[in-house]
Computed example of a mutant assay.
Amino acid sequence: MLRSTLSRRFRATRVIAAATAAVAWAALTGPVAHADAPAVPEFADGFGLTQVPDAREVHSGTDFSITVTTPEVAGPRKIRIFLPSDYASEPGKRWPVAYFLHGGPGNADDAGAVEGLRSDRMITVAPDGGRKGWYADWLMQDTAEGAANWKTFHLEQVVPFIDANLRTVPDRDHRAVIGLSMGGFGSMHYAQARPDLFGHVASLSGAIDFGDYAVRGAVVATELNLLSAWCAVSSSRGCADYGPVVDSDAIFGSPYPVFNADHIWRSVDPASSTNLAKLADTGITLYTGDNDLIEKRTAAGVRTVTSRLDRLGIPSRAVNYGNGASLSPTCNGGHNYGCFAPAIADYIPRLEAAFAAAATN
Rank of each mutant, 00 (worst) to 15 (best):
D212A: 06
P195I: 06
K78A: 13
D142Y: 05
R77G: 01
P315F: 06
R303F: 02
S248P: 15
H200V: 03
S203K: 03
R118S: 11
F252E: 03
S248E: 13
S119Q: 07
G116E: 04
V52L: 11
V23H: 05
T298G: 11
D249A: 10
S328K: 10
A37F: 11
A343D: 03
Y242F: 03
E295F: 04
A44I: 10
Q141Y: 09
F259W: 14
P84G: 07
Y87L: 01
T50S: 13
D142S: 10
P170K: 07
T285M: 14
G104A: 15
F185G: 01
A359G: 13
S234Q: 11
A144E: 09
A359W: 00
G30M: 11
G283M: 11
Q192I: 06
L351F: 02
P255G: 05
V319G: 03
G243P: 03
V15C: 12
D346Q: 08
G146L: 07
G206Q: 08
N291W: 10
R350D: 05
D269S: 03
A356M: 00
S7N: 14
I66S: 00
I348F: 04
H154W: 13
V52W: 12
L276M: 02
I79T: 00
P96W: 04
M140A: 12
L101M: 13
I284Q: 02
A55C: 02
R9E: 07
P315I: 06
A39F: 14
A74F: 10
V15S: 13
G253E: 06
S85M: 09
G75T: 06
V220G: 07
E295V: 04
F210P: 02
V159R: 15
T70L: 06
G253H: 09
V52Q: 12
A44E: 15
G75P: 09
P53Y: 09
A240Q: 15
R131C: 00
E72Y: 10
A193C: 01
Q51P: 06
I294Y: 13
